[in-house]
Design a binder for these strands. Structure first.
Length: 137
DNA sequence: ACGATGACAATGC
DNA sequence: TGCATTGCCATCG
């Protein structure tokens, strides 16, 4: 480790800030890449966040709580990383359907996260159960 | 030095 | 919703 914080390069500093931001995401919560970047004081560096996570070191880092801004998992559906992430999130009680988080889009800001609007829209009940949609039992 | 790549995002149609 | 475009920036060949 740098004997002196002064020896730290810009890249290293960014990395450190990003890791801290990711660790700050509470269990059962999710955040977007761009969001993490902003919280880390690096607005516009979503891609950098992705790169840092892709490195995959840092044991114990809750990388699975980081999603795309639209609430979808960043990995291609079906890939090992995808399955892994979905599983971890579900283990924390996060609802996921069709590859995207339900009931809690990656909060754009901490405020939004705290405001936590109850539910965007329960959408009433399914139009239907129209004949033929019955599921097997 | 240069172009391609990538766990992305915001904007426009 | 979906697709294209542009911005970003560290790495890599």
């Amino acid at each position: 480790m740098p004997a002196n914080p002064k020896d730290e390069t810009e890249t290293q500093r960014s990395r450190r800030l990003i890791l801290a931001a990711v660790r700050a995401v509470p269990r059962g919560q999710v955040a977007g890449y761009g969001e993490i970047a902003r919280r880390a004081g690096l607005p516009g560096r979503a891609r950098l966040v992705a790169r840092v996570l892709s490195t995959g070191d840092e044991p114990g880092l809750p990388w699975h709580r980081v999603l795309r801004s639209d609430g979808r998992v960043a990995f291609p559906e079906g890939s090992p990383g995808y399955d892994e992430q979905v599983q971890r999130l579900r283990a924390e009680g996060v609802r996921i359907e069709a590859g995207k988080v339900r009931g809690q889009r990656a909060a754009a800001t901490l405020d939004e996260m705290l405001w936590a609007p109850p539910e965007p829209k329960p959408k009433a009940s399914r139009p239907a159960a129209a004949a033929g949609t019955r599921r097997r039992r």
